[in-house]
Write a protein that binds this DNA or RNA. Structure first.
Length: 205
DNA sequence: CCGACGATAGTT
DNA sequence: ACTATCGTCGGT
């Protein structure tokens, strides 16, 4: 069932872990595209690497809106998906997912997702485990665009996060300090469902 | 060594 | 809203 508004009203780190295993469902023409979240990252207002730390602007307003608001931004050729968490300026970045199929989202969707996210240099289709592997790639494979969803709320008819009862048995955490971003450093809280550790964006140390 | 991807600054 | 671009990671 769709995650309720209250689900998101938690500390960003807690929320980031809670989102692992949840299903992203996006209405695409007559079908529902779906992918399971396998990797997330928490960002805080005080985090020098967060967009929120750069201050409130029209583009970043979603980060300051109530928990559960969608925040999308465009960078380096792709869209990225985030959800605001408890406390203004705090959010979770959805870093990676894995194509998901069930009654609502048939396996025939794989072809559609491959078409939405074609390989860089022509060639064959992306392998399934690479289709949503990366924050911008998953948006591409699911057809999520900034102008459509930034600062919006989830919609049971078009785009929402779904709890199918799956919980990661083990969560890997990369809590790394000293990642240079500009001249400053920032805290990174990255979480990976251990069951998908071999297909997440970066290997966890 | 080479290809792919990415919490930005800058431009229309 | 969209685009460019270079450092880092991962695979061969």
């Amino acid at each position: 069932m769709q995650l309720k508004k209250t689900f998101f009203n938690r500390d960003a780190t807690i929320l980031a872990k809670a989102l692992l295993g949840k299903i992203i469902r996006v209405k695409h023409k007559s079908t529902w595209l779906a992918a399971q979240i396998i990797e997330t990252e928490a960002y805080y207002l005080d985090d020098k690497g967060s967009h929120a730390s750069l201050g409130f602007t029209e583009k970043r307003k979603a980060l300051f809106m109530p928990a559960g608001t969608i925040y999308m931004y465009y960078a380096r050729g792709g869209d990225s998906l985030n959800v605001s968490a408890k406390g203004e300026g705090n959010a979770v970045l959805i870093k990676s997912a894995y194509p998901y199929f069930d009654k609502i989202s048939p396996e025939t969707n794989l072809v559609i997702m491959q078409q939405l996210n074609p390989p860089k240099n022509g060639g064959a289709s992306r392998p399934t485990h690479k289709l949503c592997n990366g924050q911008t790639l998953l948006c591409r494979a699911l057809g999520l665009k900034v102008p459509h969803w930034d600062a919006k709320q989830f919609d049971a008819n078009l785009f929402y996060l779904d709890d199918v009862g799956y919980k990661p048995q083990k969560i890997l955490q990369a809590k790394r300090l000293g990642i240079p971003i500009g001249r400053d450093e920032h805290l990174e809280y990255r979480f990976v469902d251990a069951a998908f550790a071999d297909v997440c964006t970066k290997k966890i140390k």
